[in-house]
Lab assay of single mutants.
Amino acid sequence: EPEARKIVEKLINNGLSPEDVKRWAEKNNNPEVKKAAEEYQKR
């Protein structure tokens, strides 16, 4: 999901860690963003 990846990169560029992004995604019920954050961590 390229859109989710863009969101993850934007949040990380704004100073969030991938863990923060995953928590944000869970709080906002956004499994695509959570998955993208996990993939981002593996890179």
Rank of each mutant, 00 (worst) to 15 (best):
A36M: 11
S17P: 01
N28S: 10
E26I: 03
K10H: 14
N13G: 12
K27M: 14
E3L: 08
S17D: 09
N28P: 01
K27T: 11
L11N: 00
L16W: 15
E39G: 04
N28K: 04
E19G: 06
E32M: 12
A4P: 09
N14V: 10
N30A: 14
N30Q: 14
V8Y: 06
N28Q: 10
K35A: 12
E38P: 01
I12L: 12
E38A: 05
K34W: 13
E39V: 02
V8E: 00
N29E: 08
I12Y: 04
Q41S: 07
E19V: 06
E3P: 09
N29A: 09
G15T: 03
E38C: 09
N29G: 13
E19N: 07
K34Q: 10
E38M: 06
N13H: 12
E3K: 08
E3G: 10
R43Y: 13
A36L: 13
K27Y: 09
E39K: 04
E9D: 08
K34Y: 14
W24P: 04
E38N: 05
R23T: 06
N13R: 14
I7R: 03
P18A: 12
V21T: 02
R23S: 08
E26W: 00
W24M: 06
N14T: 11
K42V: 09
R5S: 10
E9A: 09
N14S: 15
E3A: 12
P31N: 08
E39I: 05
K35D: 07
P18W: 13
N30F: 15
V21S: 02
N13D: 10
K6L: 12
R23G: 05
L11R: 01
K42D: 12
P31F: 10
K27V: 13
K6S: 12
V21M: 05
V33W: 04
E32G: 10
E9M: 06
I12R: 02
V33P: 00
P31H: 10
P2N: 15
K22F: 11
L11D: 00
E39D: 12
N13M: 13
K22T: 08
R5E: 09
E38F: 03
E38Q: 06
P2W: 15
N29H: 08
E1N: 13
E26M: 01
E19I: 06
K42R: 11
N30C: 14
K34V: 12
K35N: 07
E26P: 01
A37P: 00
A4N: 03
A4M: 05
P18Y: 14
R5T: 10
I12V: 08
K42A: 11
A4L: 06
